[in-house]
Structures are given as C-alpha cells and as structure tokens.
C-alpha cells in the first residue's frame, strides 16, 4: 500500500524482489533429517562401490591385463582371469535376449493392441507378478522340468544345424546310442531360464511405450484404410522403437547379473565354451557363488575384481537403457 505513494527514486531497472524463506526450527530439523538420510544412502552406495574398487584393485594389480585373457581361475597360483566366465556371461545373456525379445514384443503388443479392454489390467498384473516370482523358482523350473525338453531340442538343432555356436563336439548326432548328457546343463538351458526373468521386465517397458503411441496417428492410419497390423507397423512399432531398444537393454542388464537361476542350471567350466548346446557353461555370477568359500583374502579380492567387472558392465547397460527410454518418453510428451 505504501508502494502506491510517490517513491523517492524509481529503480533504474526492474529487479525481481528477492524472496527469502525463513524456516522455523521444526522445518530446519526436518530438512536436516531428510538431508542426512540422503547422505547416508549416498555414503552406503559409495562405500559399496569404493570397497569393490579398492579390494578389486589388489587382484587387478597382481594379474594386470592377463586378468582379461586368462581362462582358468586359480588365484593362489596367480593364474586367474575372466576370459572364460565373461564370455559365458555374455553368451547366456545373448541366448536369453534372443528368446526374450520376441516373447516380450509379442506380449507387449498383445496387451496394448489386441487384448480386450477389461482384461488389460489383469494381464498387466500377471506380467508384473512374473517379475516378482523368485529366481530360485525359475531355477527349479529350468533344472527339473525343462531339462528334458531342452535336451531334445538341443539334439535336434545339433543334428540339423550343427555348425558355429550350435556345433557339439565329441558326439556323433547320427549315433542313436550316443550319450545324451552332452546336451544337458548347457548355455541354452541357462539362457532359457534367464529369458523367463527378463521377459516381464522388457515387456512392461515396451507395453508402456506402445500404449503411448498417439491416437491421432493411429486413427489416421485406420482412416487411410490400414488393417490393424498395417497400423501397428506404420505407427506403433516406429513410435515404440526407443522403448523396444531400452526395454531390451534393461532386460540385458538383469540377464548379465542373474545368479541363482544360472547356478542351478549349468555345470561351471573354466574355459571358453562357445558351443551353446554343449554341457558346461560359465558366468561371472556363478563363479562368485561357487568360489566365495575360498577363504584366502586374495581369492576374495580376485572375486571382487570379477564382481566389479560385472557391475561396470551392468552399469553401462542400465544407464544406456534408461537414457534411451527417457528420450523415447520425452518424445511422447512433445507430441501430445
């Protein structure tokens, strides 16, 4: 009110009034508590990362670059490396992704485009439930139920394709009396089990992006005479490309770090095993689960180095995935 009276001197330029906020004592305590919780979490997380880094460095310093080229794992003898287990991890993840991508794209398309409206919520819940099923249950499924079926499929593939990663050495597919145990506990079986855990994660990201495809463009496609599949190919899939890539990578991050389902379904070998149908596979997580009992501090340090490698791998994959997903979503907001 006093401002309407003639001011002594008009300000040279308009400066926004500075708003100061004086917090009461309760507010200050509240902010302090919240901030300290944030800092505690930060500290915990940095502690985990830092501890892994420091303890892992001991082993890395001893092994040097041979850590990435050595296949065997004998930390006491000084010969240890992750060439075999890293290859195995990537192979299992590749098999899992190869199985999970068609499944999750199909499920996501079914839920967002084909399913009747009243079933949608139920189906979304089922897919979420699938993500909540403990991995040990998937491991049981793979180790006890699927082993027989996978064996037959693996023998069929080995017989009719039989080269490259599908080759199985040491057994003649034409010999009906040959032992079938060479086809069990393989990379394929572990990949199948991991695919079941990856599918719901990838599928829920994809479904979300598919259902955000702009209604105007869908109707435009229909108005031009497109069939439903024509509309999906012309509108939904191009629009959801970012979500499909991001969801797949998010699943890949999970597939790389999966432990117990892999431990229950493979027999661990410490050599590069490029044949995905052959018994014997390897993964970093299975290595840690099998060898943590080697109580010598140096062995644990070596395991830490392997764990650190795995963590960095999943970290890169996850950050790439979340940035791709975020970009595809920000596009969605722009169009709306």
């Amino acid at each position: 009110m006093t401002a309407t009276l003639t001011p002594t001197k008009p300000p040279a330029r308009a400066v926004p009034r500075r708003l100061t906020q004086r917090a009461g004592p309760a507010d200050r305590v509240f902010r302090g508590v919240a901030r300290s919780a944030g800092m505690t979490v930060l500290l915990m997380m940095l502690l985990v990362g830092g501890f892994l880094l420091i303890r892992g460095r001991e082993a890395l310093d001893v092994a040097g670059w041979s850590f990435f080229t050595t296949e065997e794992w004998a930390p006491e003898g000084g010969r240890f490396g992750i060439a075999a287990v890293l290859t195995g991890t990537l192979l299992i993840a590749a098999v899992a992704i190869a199985i999970a991508v068609p499944l999750s794209v199909g499920t996501a398309l079914y839920i967002s485009e084909y399913a009747p409206a009243r079933l949608k919520r139920f189906l979304v819940n089922l897919v979420d439930l699938m993500a909540a099923v403990p991995s040990v249950v998937y491991g049981l499924w793979g180790a006890f139920l699927m082993e027989g079926s996978v064996l037959g499929v693996a023998r069929w593939i080995a017989t009719w394709i039989g080269y490259g990663p599908f080759a199985v050495d040491g057994v003649d597919p034409a010999d009906p009396l040959a032992s079938e145990t060479v086809y069990t506990r393989s990379t394929l079986l572990a990949g199948l089990v991991v695919a079941m855990m990856v599918t719901p994660i990838a599928s829920s990201v994809m479904r979300e992006v598919f259902s955000q495809a702009p209604a105007g463009e869908r109707e435009g496609a229909y108005a031009l005479g497109a069939t439903r599949w024509g509309m999906i190919r012309a509108v939904v899939l191009p629009y959801g490309k970012g979500g499909m890539i991001g969801g797949t990578m998010l699943g890949l991050g999970r597939a790389l770090g999966e432990t117990i389902g892999v431990v229950m379904t493979i027999s661990l070998v410490y050599q590069i095993q490029p044949h995905i149908l052959r018994a014997g596979a390897s993964s970093i997580s299975a290595l840690i689960a099998n060898r943590y009992g080697d109580a010598s501090p140096f062995a644990v340090s070596a395991l830490m180095a392997a764990g650190l490698t795995l963590f960095l791998l999943t970290l890169v994959v996850n950050f790439a995935a979340s940035s791709i997903i975020a970009r595809s979503r920000s596009g969605a907001e722009g169009d709306a």
Partner: peptide, 19 residues
Amino acid sequence: VVEAMTALPSIVAGLFVFA
C-alpha cells in the same frame, strides 16, 4: 548414484557384505 545402484547385481551386493 541411486539409479546406478539399481544395476548392482545381487551377488555383488552379497559379495560386498561377505567381504
């Protein structure tokens, strides 16, 4: 950092506490 930690494989979390 919290987002980075969601990528932490559970076996590595176990290994950290174990060590």
